[in-house]
Amino acid sequence: MPTDVDQQPGEERAAQGGMALIQVRDVAMQFGGLRAVDGLSLTLHQGEMLGLIGPNGAGKTTLFNLIAGSLKPTAGGIFIDDRDVSHEGADRRIGHGVGRTFQIPRPFAEMTVLENVLTGRQHQAGEHIWMNFLRGGQVAREERQAVEKARALLDFVTLSHLESEPARVLSGGQRKLLELARILMADPRAILLDEPAAGVNPSLLEVIIERIRWLNADGKSVLLIEHNMDMVARLCSRVVVMAAGRYLTEGTPDEVVRDPAVIEAYLGEAA
């Protein structure tokens, strides 16, 4: 968790030549007759906060699913630290330091808020059934550490007061914060945020924006899908635009919103 938000922002470090953390190379995803992603490439550098925008149906969430390992590409490859992980499952991507949130947040509704965050902690001795009997002390120590960290993360996302409540009672915005805490539990290097502002009330949105800033300042790379251009402009210095599954253009938020091709892609959708 960040301790000093005034340190050199991750964005600046990335601009100074951060290494490529995630590379999407000529990726395509075909669903029957629909080509949801069509030969797209992009790079997320270490410490960078990259925006990904595009009209509905552009293939942004499909691209997220490909990067997070929920889908396997029909062509091209996903590389993390220059290593091809295209055919590894979602549970392995966490091990590579990539965590994601969902457009519609998905908590484990019947588990408590604290337990939801704890599910993000993996590789504990207590996951091995025999260790619970043979190494009770080690298991208990690790569990205590995990609970301490989960409580600190709940404090970070301002949900401490709800830690014993079942996650089903949370509002949409609180669920988004809970998802953020859950992926932070695994100490990811890159965070994929799928429309964190959607359906969130303005005061909670400010909390979310602030927390994302802190995480980036702490060195975490962020790939952000968002329709709220104000939020994108406040957070990202570089934005990639997708349309019809393809790379359309990229630039600063100001540049892309004035780009005629981008305007046409959005207006075409409106028409």
Binding site: A90, D91, G95, F108, T119
Partner: peptide
């Protein structure tokens, strides 16, 4: 319990 509630999500979370 996480797998019992949502197996796909549990996988994404890293279980």
């Amino acid at each position: 319990r996480a797998v019992s509630e949502n197996q796909a999500l549990a996988g994404v979370v890293g279980v």
